[in-house]
C-alpha cells in the first residue's frame, strides 16, 4: 500500500521534473528540473531494490552531468537568449510525442509479462560478477570509449591546429 504512494510521489516528481525540463523558459530552471527528475529516478531505482545503481545515478548525473551542463550554458551565454525557447516545430512535436507515448503504452499493455508482481533484490555481488564475466567485453569497450571521448573533446575544442 505504502509502496504505491511512494511510487506515485516519485513518479510525479520525475514527470514533473521532466515537464520542467521541456517546458521551462529559463534555462537555469530547466537544468534544476532535470536534476530533480534524475534524483527521482534514483529513488525509483531504490524502489526496484537496486541501490548501487541509485548511488551511481546520483553521483554521476547529479554530480557530474548537471555541473557540466551548467558550465556549458554559462559559456554559451544562454541567459542572453531570452524569450521563447521553443522552435517552430512545436505543434507537430506535441502530436508526435503523444503518439509515441500511445504506441509504447499500447505495446506494453498488450504484453502479458507486464503484469508480473514479484520483484527480487539484486545483491551487489551478482552485479559485480556479471559485470566482469558475461559483460567483460562491453566493459572494456566502454573504457575505451571513455578514452576516445576524452581525446575527442580535447581535439574538438582546441584553439590552434594540432
Amino acid at each position: 500500500m505504502i509502496e504505491i504512494i511512494v511510487l506515485i510521489i516519485l513518479g510525479g516528481l520525475c514527470l514533473g521534473g521532466g515537464l520542467g525540463v521541456v517546458a521551462s523558459r529559463n534555462v537555469a530552471y530547466a537544468t534544476i528540473c532535470l536534476l530533480i527528475a534524475l534524483l527521482a529516478v534514483a529513488g525509483i531505482y531504490v524502489m526496484l531494490l537496486s541501490e548501487f545503481l541509485a548511488l551511481v545515478q546520483v553521483l554521476i548525473y547529479g554530480g557530474a552531468v548537471t555541473i557540466v551542463l551548467l558550465f556549458a550554458l554559462m559559456l554559451t551565454r544562454a541567459h542572453e537568449l531570452e524569450g521563447r525557447q521553443d522552435n517552430r516545430q512545436r505543434p507537430i512535436a506535441i502530436c508526435v510525442s503523444l503518439l509515441i507515448f500511445a504506441a509504447i503504452s499500447f505495446a506494453t499493455y498488450t504484453n502479458e509479462q507486464a503484469s508480473a508482481t514479484d520483484r527480487v533484490s539484486a545483491p551487489l555481488k551478482t552485479l559485480g560478477t556479471e559485470l566482469f564475466s558475461s559483460w567483460l567485453i562491453p566493459f572494456e569497450i566502454t573504457g575505451l570509449i571513455l578514452l576516445i571521448v576524452l581525446l575527442g573533446v580535447v581535439i574538438i575544442t582546441h584553439k590552434e591546429k594540432i
Partner: peptide, 11 residues
C-alpha cells in the same frame, strides 16, 4: 522529426 516519424511507422 524524421527519425521519430520513421520509428512510429515501424511501430
Amino acid at each position: 522529426l524524421g527519425i521519430v516519424l520513421g520509428i512510429l511507422v515501424i511501430f
